[in-house]
Simulated scan of single mutants.
Amino acid sequence: MNLHDDTVRVLKRYEGQPELREIYLAHLAAHPDGMWKACGAGHVTASALVIDPERGRVLLTLHKKLGMWLQMGGHCEPADGSLAAAALREATEESGIPGLTLLPGGPVQLDRHAIPAPCHWHLDVQYAASAPPGAVEAISEESLDLRWFEYDEVAGVADGSVVRLLARTRAALSERVPG
């Protein structure tokens, strides 16, 4: 299965945000190149919020081009075997943390946002990744800074998309914990 087909499969299984999900699916149906940066109408991106649930914190990157605190993520690459693999690759590259694991259950959230020309839209499929115990981050060339924030600090530094992603991630975590 190629990355385009995998992404369609992932989106069809994703039960949240039905209107936005349909926009993503329609985009991919209309644009066979809709996974790639070269698609001028917009393209799918993959990201992951890196969390340390035991310490109640999240790792954010100060994006070099945007100057905003964001989750790790970016463009899909032809070598990515799946959308989840793309998100995990991006999170690992940008956090410098080996051994990240995506939370089971697929994407946590979709976020469609405008970007400057020549492209028009990023159709971001957002996952969450758990950091292994004792994880040590390492800043990448794509970041101005990389920092752990307590859950309750995120709203003070990040935009609404990241705040919603954290809230959905915490809800997904609480659903996994018995009792």
Rank of each mutant, 00 (worst) to 15 (best):
K65R: 03
A171L: 12
L110M: 13
H120N: 12
D159C: 14
A155L: 12
E175A: 15
A129E: 02
V163G: 02
Y127V: 08
L3Q: 03
C119T: 11
A46G: 08
G16I: 10
L123M: 02
Q17F: 12
D33Q: 11
N2E: 10
P118E: 07
R164A: 12
R21S: 12
A138L: 04
A38C: 14
D5H: 09
L166W: 01
L60N: 02
G40E: 15
S140I: 05
W69K: 07
A129M: 06
G74Y: 04
V58G: 00
R176G: 11
T101P: 08
G73R: 03
W36M: 12
T92C: 10
P118F: 00
G40H: 14
P132Q: 14
D6H: 15
H75P: 02
S140L: 09
A129F: 03
E141T: 11
A87R: 08
E90S: 09
L166Y: 00
V58F: 03
P133Y: 04
A172M: 13
E94A: 14
L146N: 03
P118V: 01
R164M: 10
M72K: 06
R21F: 14
G81M: 07
H122E: 11
K37G: 00
K65F: 07
A26K: 14
V108G: 02
C119F: 09
I115S: 00
L144S: 10
E15N: 14
L62K: 12
L62E: 04
M72H: 03
S82P: 00
A91L: 06
H120S: 13
A79G: 01
M35H: 01
G73A: 07
G74V: 12
A91S: 07
V108L: 10
R55P: 03
I139E: 01
V58R: 01
G134R: 07
T92I: 08
E94R: 05
P104G: 13
G16R: 14
P116H: 02
Q109S: 12
D124W: 00
R168P: 00
H75S: 15
H63S: 10
L49C: 11
I97M: 06
G74E: 02
E150F: 00
P116D: 07
H4N: 07
I51V: 13
G56I: 04
A131P: 00
I139R: 05
E54M: 15
P132F: 11
L146W: 01
G179L: 15
G42R: 01
D111Q: 11
P107H: 13
G81K: 05
G156L: 10
H113P: 01
I51C: 05
M1S: 14
H31P: 04
A91T: 05
V50G: 11
R21L: 15
C119H: 07
Y127S: 06
M68P: 01
A135Y: 06
V58N: 00
A114F: 13
V162N: 04
Q71C: 09
L11S: 09
D159K: 09
H63V: 00
E142F: 13
R9Q: 15
D124I: 06
A86L: 03
Y14C: 11
Q126F: 01
